[in-house]
């Protein structure tokens, strides 16, 4: 068990280091350096050199990489060459907003998908099960921003139930906060729920074919009861994996949804930074997103032995 934990932790750290090198290289060795990009094409060479010196861009790449990493470890993601302001507060504020969106979305997606997928598996031969499967196939094909536009058309423009855009912190008013949260969360959750439903259904179907379910049925348990008592825990492993993957997908999906609903999250900051050619901010936000993806994977890895004793004993 300890060996399993240590090997996972080591893999996590290695992945983090490699990812940081990749992000740094991508942003550093590209046509036009950051100072040139920030000042625009009309800048004099002297101005570019001055800005480079000011932000230490004239240092060798290895030194700059180490400074960047050391800064991040100390909670400092650097200073934007475009605005001249430190970017850490921007990242912290926007990550909080995105985290609310993403966590709410995965919860809603799981709440929709687990019952629906289980039901579709139990009823796989009749029209309800087939309809759920078909609907989930269609749902997967709908990009979240299209779902968002359709939801806005119906629930905001036609029915007027929710605002079509904007954001409000929960301390400014819980009602306003929730009203602005519903449509973005549902747009993100629906597509993920469609994908997750398929996995839940398939996992439950696999479990139902197992010998121990047949044994439980032979003991006189009903199909549903056998599944609930013995099956669901086993079906949980693939579902947890997929939900973890989806959490990561949602982080990126939120980038687009935040644009649709004008929400001040990581995605909006990222798109704004790209538009402003603010490479330091892009580099910081991308690193935070990749870090979050890796952390989610790490946590999913840690969850396996808890859910499945077989992995615990094997490791």
């Amino acid at each position: 068990m300890l060996a399993y934990l240590l090997s996972r932790a080591a893999q996590f750290v290695v992945a983090l280091v490699v990812a940081s090198v990749v992000v740094f290289l991508l942003m550093s060795f590209l046509p036009g350096n950051a100072a040139q990009v920030a000042l625009g094409t009309n800048a004099t060479p002297e101005a570019v050199a001055a800005l480079e010196a000011q932000y230490g861009l004239d240092e060798p790449p290895l030194i700059r990489y180490l400074q960047w990493v050391a800064g991040m470890l100390g909670g400092d993601f650097g200073t934007s060459y475009v605005t001249g302001a430190p970017i850490t507060p921007v990242i912290i504020a926007s990550v909080q907003v995105t985290a609310i969106l993403v966590v709410c979305s995965i919860v809603v997606a799981v709440l929709i998908a687990v019952p629906l997928g289980t039901f579709a598996a139990l009823e796989q031969r009749n029209w309800i099960g087939v309809t759920i499967s078909a609907l989930s196939q269609v749902g997967i094909a709908v990009p979240n921003f299209l779902a968002a536009i359709i939801l806005v058309m119906i629930f905001s423009l036609q029915l007027g139930w929710f605002p079509s855009q904007g954001w409000m912190a929960s301390i400014e008013g819980v009602g306003g906060f929730l009203a602005r949260l519903v449509l973005p969360v549902v747009s993100l959750a629906l597509v993920q729920a469609a994908i997750l439903t398929r996995y839940v259904r398939s996992a439950v179907l696999d479990v139902m074919r197992e010998d121990y379910i047949r044994t439980a049925r032979a003991k006189g348990l009903t199909r549903t009861r056998a599944l609930f008592v013995h099956g669901l825990r086993n079906a949980a492993i693939p579902v947890i994996t997929v939900a973890g993957v989806q959490l990561a997908t949602l982080l990126v999906g939120a980038v687009i949804i935040e644009q649709v609903f004008v929400i001040p999250g990581v995605g909006s900051e990222l798109v704004r930074a790209v538009a402003n050619r603010d490479l330091v901010t892009v580099q910081g936000i991308v690193m935070v997103l990749v870090m979050l993806v890796l952390i989610i994977n790490f946590i999913v890895d840690l969850l396996y032995p808890i859910v499945d004793p077989r992995i615990r004993s094997a490791a």
């Binding site: 996995y199 693939p238 989610i296 999913v300």
Partner: peptide
């Protein structure tokens, strides 16, 4: 779409067959 998961007993890059 993502992740360190080759070691897991399940591969989400491959959609489940409906």
């Amino acid at each position: 779409m993502s992740e360190a998961r080759s070691s897991t007993p399940f591969d989400p890059t491959l959609p489940v067959r409906v």
